[in-house]
Amino acid sequence: MKIILIIPAYNEQENILNTVNKIKNSRLNIDYIVINDGSKDNTEKILQENHLNHINLINNLGIGGAVQTGYKYAYENNYDIAIQFDGDGQHDVNYVEKICKPIIDEEVDMVIGSRYLDKSESEFQSTFMRRFGSSIISIFIRLCCKKKITDPTSGFRAVNKKVIKEFAKNYPTEYPEPESTVSLLVNNYNIKEIPVSMNARCGGKSSIELFKTVDYMVKVIFAIIVDSISFKIRRKQ
């Protein structure tokens, strides 16, 4: 079974080499692709000097556009499972097997690694505001799609071949994690969450800053409502 890790990276000169080395040093037989999202720092130089498998986006597209490029790469190269994996060292490579298992067993179409499903599993639970934001988004997903997703903003997720094809064609680029979850739920794909541990960022700057949390939350909720309605209408048509 061909498995690939999609690693979006924007200004990750401090973390990217470490993240890829951890993947290489693990006993997992998986490929990886780093999507350098038009970084302004030395990320590109590091990727080239160390001969890491990567695609350089000629301009910054944001996390959604970068991840979709990864799905396109996975689709073109006929991968069976694609796993989104942050380039900032937040995600633990030891959970890759666990996150893939329900897909290998053909149990579900997408698996989300959740920080909040089992609190003892993850030491890093992020800030109160983000946890609060996540729970509000989660409530709205439950209202619109009738499915409980405890960590809708988690970027650690694995998908099967069917979803790779879907995401290669259509992937929300504005608020990718919650919106893509809603699009799959509305289209009757099966999603499962498994508890994972995440680390605090090793270095660099998070793309979602604290003061933006509320703004992000409001826009995401609006996007969830609009998406769930429009996807339902499109499905009926």
């Binding site: 695609i55 986006l57 000629i58 301009n59 597209l61 490029t69």
Partner: peptide, 14 residues
């Protein structure tokens, strides 16, 4: 269209 162009061009370069 821009997103699509950037993605396709970057993949072609690769």
């Amino acid at each position: 269209k821009n997103i699509l162009l950037i993605q396709e061009l970057s993949m072609l370069k690769k």
